[in-house]
Design a protein around this nucleic acid. Structure first.
Lengths: 165, 165
DNA sequence: CGCTTCTTTCAGAAATTTGTGAAGTTAAGG
DNA sequence: CCTTAACTTCACAAATTTCTGAAAGAAGCG
């Protein structure tokens, strides 16, 4: 109707999607700015944007981009790369691996297990509460190995469906 | 050393555990009060406490207990039961099933899938970004069935290890 | 080397979230 | 019915979080 080629992205629609996807991430516990930045990167065709581009699309300050990106890099959701011949930086989503990071809660699970072990001791292994903790601990240990296997199955499944890219 | 019978709970140690476990829950995204209340319930021998007991142990107002419990009940982490012959209410953790609720992110996953489907449309199924969304969507669909199967395996595993209770 | 362009850090204003006291509501038990 | 024990709701004060502008810090390029 209005725009020219079909290849021109509907900026409005894309932005709506970015915000609604970011909202999901926020609801799942991610901070707002990291969520918005991540959603923007994910919906860019190149899978990467510069700081300036992010600031413009999301209407946020360079400082906000910087903070968000630091968080995302720390959690391995995004990587930073230097644009050759420029002092610009590009932030990139690791194609298909970002959701692996999402399930890669190894460190998180380990901490839970630590807390639970401490719980079994504090409460006494022979008490009802202690037994409840022990069982929960066993659950997390179970989950831990299951997730690894699940991700292996996913990679097989994915390759079949999408090719090895 | 100090206390009498070995059955007397070390209040100090239990409280430390409650707070440290609650801190993990908070880090995982749960609000502070629900996290503390839940941790307290989980480490009680009966697996249940009254509003007054919770308020006393955690040093919080009845209003705070009320708010926390409402949240926990909504998310099926805790159930409320009326104490017969009293107008007290008891809040109870569903023994071994609370962590099932934890993985029962059915609704959450569905919402993600909805957002992603919208994304494929907004971005265009034939664009690089659209394909990235489609693949992510496939991942969530995969996860969804995997989790169900995983929990079935857990129940078998658990019964072997702890008996059917 | 110094200019210029980009990124980061930091203090603080603004917005949001959190927990409380107090008032309101419900229901048991006389 | 009235009293009273318990839970809930609500408005607000306090604490926390979030984002910005401004200044400082790097790094390419002449």
């Amino acid at each position: 109707m209005t725009e020219s080629a079909s290849s021109a992205r509907d900026t409005e629609a894309v932005s709506r999607f970015v915000e609604s996807f970011a909202a999901q991430l926020v609801e799942a516990g991610m901070q707002r700015m990291p969520a918005r930045v991540f959603a923007a990167l994910l919906s860019s065709d190149e899978g990467s944007m510069t700081s300036a581009e992010l600031g413009e699309q999301l209407r946020i300050s360079p400082a906000a981009v910087s903070g968000a990106v630091r968080y995302l890099a720390q959690t391995h959701m995004v990587s930073r790369e230097r644009e050759p011949g420029s002092r610009r930086e590009r932030y990139r989503v690791h194609g298909n691996q970002w959701y692996e990071a999402l399930t890669n809660r190894e460190a998180v699970i380990k901490r839970w297990e630590g807390a639970l072990r401490e719980g079994v001791t504090s409460l006494g292994a022979d008490t009802p509460a202690g037994r409840r903790m022990a069982e929960t601990l066993a659950f997390f240990e179970f989950i831990e190995t299951e997730i690894v296997e699940m991700m292996e199955r996913w990679r097989v499944h994915r390759e079949k469906k999408f090719g090895q890219e």
